[in-house]
């Protein structure tokens, strides 16, 4: 069996996690290349559908990284993201994918090392869980206009 290389999508707030990722790069910090970053203007931009679509399109894990609580550039975006992540976890549990494949993190723009740490943490967690049940067997997917539309 070939080695499992998890695909992880990270929705990163422009004002914190995305800047932290930048900083991690400038600091030459190593973090796993499994992470696919999606820049969002605020973690509050992330909704349940975006998270589900990430899983549907093949992600083994997803995380949302927003500002520290109380520090949101748009005041409450990260609190809203937190609630949506909790709701999406419930849906993932119901589907059987598992809510533990999804997580919300809070960090600041100056947290380059923390960004790398979070990436490591998620890769370790998803590696232990194994591939998403959607990716673990070959199932031909019917033509679905919405599911195949580019994001």
């Amino acid at each position: 069996m070939s080695e499992f290389y998890p695909k992880i999508v990270a929705f990163c707030c422009y004002y914190c996690a995305y800047s932290a990722a930048d900083l991690a790069g400038s600091m030459r910090l190593q973090y796993p290349s499994n992470i696919r970053l999606v820049e969002v203007p605020c973690s509050g931009r992330v909704d349940v559908l975006m998270i589900l679509k990430a899983f549907e399109k093949g992600a083994d894990g997803v995380y949302v990284a927003g500002c520290l609580e109380g520090d949101c550039h748009f005041l409450k975006g990260n609190y809203r993201a937190k609630k949506r992540v909790l709701y999406a976890k419930k849906i993932l549990d119901e589907i059987g994918i598992g809510g533990e494949r999804l997580e919300m993190f809070n960090l600041s723009g100056s947290s380059g090392p923390r960004f790398a740490e979070i990436a490591e943490e998620m890769v370790t967690r998803i590696s232990k869980l194994g591939p998403s049940p959607l990716n673990s067997r070959l199932v031909s997917f019917p033509n679905c206009k919405d599911a195949t539309a580019g994001n």
Partner: peptide, 19 residues
Amino acid sequence: VLASALRMSRKKEGNPLET
């Protein structure tokens, strides 16, 4: 959201659903 959840659930069961 419902469509995505249903598709994923059925795909997981090996009985894909088209929506």
